[in-house]
């Protein structure tokens, strides 16, 4: 088990290198830093001095991969690739355009992101699995049919509709919670309730249908027939046999998401003014702060790889037949 995890972690290194190289090519080779400077400073009436100053301020005035101006080891280190991309492996992301340290900003914003994303994930999973079990319990009946139709209809509604409609109904018409904002400690509860509910409702259609399919696939297996034949009640068959055996396909889809919960949700956070990583990313995109976007790409892929590893480990917990080697 330990060697397995170690090997998987080593396997992650080339992937992260690839991600790093890809973002580097995107941000520095497709467009030279000169282009970016011109873009930031405005395309017209920009002097070469202004561009040089912009590049020096942000450390973009170095060659891409190989510095011929210096001798020895700095030939490789005094370059854009080493300074801007390779340094990310030590989680040193440098400074954003507004001068703040990106790493500290990210740490501070993880909390608010989690305050919304974690409840959405846990409650959403529970609600969707329960609904799916109900539909499977009443399978091939009118309840099942109406449920599936509802799921498809809910899947077809844009997530923006749930957010805009929810804010309008709950905050503006009913005045139950503030429209947007965030607070410390218990004060935060009234701000996060609506985003959490909307997050759950937005995802319910697709996931309920997905779990229903998984349960239905399990429900025609031989062991289920055996369980029914020996006289178990339908409820016991559902909970003790089908649910437990459906864990593997459910885990495959679910566990990989857990680490990326830290990244927050772009839409919900920006609509509700929650100072998490999602709104940080959106602000960076709108302000064209390339350093922040680069850092978020790197963190995102790290978290995804952790998620893949956690998925594998969770199999051994859910299914004793699975051994990692």
């Amino acid at each position: 088990m330990f060697t397995y995890i170690l090997r998987r972690l080593l396997y992650a290194v080339p992937i992260l290198l690839g991600v790093n190289l890809l973002t580097f090519v995107l941000f520095f080779v497709v467009n030279s830093p000169d282009d970016m400077a011109r873009m930031q400073l405005g395309v017209k009436r920009v002097t070469t001095e202004a561009i040089e100053k912009w590049k020096v301020e942000r450390g973009y005035d170095k060659p891409l991969f190989w510095n011929t101006q210096v001798a020895g080891l700095p030939q490789a280190t005094e370059t854009l690739f080493f300074q801007k991309s390779a340094r990310m492996f030590t989680f040193d992301f440098g400074r954003a355009d507004d001068g703040r340290d990106i790493a500290r900003e990210i740490l501070g914003r993880m909390g608010p992101s989690l305050a919304v994303a974690l409840p959405v994930f846990v409650l959403g999973l529970m609600v969707a699995v329960s609904f799916a079990l109900i539909l499977v319990y009443f399978r091939a009946s009118a309840i099942d049919f109406v449920g599936v139709v509802l799921c498809v209809a809910m899947m077809s509604i844009s997530g923006l509709f749930y957010i805009i409609g929810g804010q309008w109904l709950v905050s503006k018409v009913w005045h139950l919670v503030p429209i947007s904002g965030f607070g410390d400690g218990v004060d935060a509860v009234k701000f996060v309730v609506l985003p959490i509910v909307i997050g759950i409702i937005g995802g319910i259609g697709a996931s309920t249908r997905w779990y229903r399919t998984i349960f239905l696939e399990e429900s025609v297996r031989d062991y289920v027939r055996t369980a029914r034949a020996k006289g178990l009640s339908e409820r016991l068959v559902l909970f003790r046999h089908i649910l437990r055996n459906a864990m593997i396909p459910i885990l495959t889809g679910v566990v990989v998401v857990i680490p990326t919960l830290f990244m927050g949700s772009l839409l919900i956070e920006s609509f509700f003014g929650i100072p998490g990583l999602g709104s940080y990313t959106i602000d960076a995109i709108n302000a064209q702060d390339f350093a922040v976007v680069r850092a978020m790409v790197f963190i995102g892929s790290c978290l995804y790889i952790v998620g893949l590893l956690m998925t594998d480990i969770s199999y051994t917990v859910a299914d004793p037949r699975v051994r990692l080697q």
């Binding site: 690839g18 890809l22 995107l26 995109i285 390339f290 680069r294 790409v297």
Partner: peptide
């Protein structure tokens, strides 16, 4: 590798870069 980058961020990064290309 492509999968490990969160979709929105990869799209955001590429679109930002494309915008610079089109604008210049």
């Amino acid at each position: 590798t492509l999968n490990s980058i969160p979709g929105v961020l990869l799209i955001a990064a590429s679109v930002l870069m494309m915008q610079v290309v089109i604008d210049t």
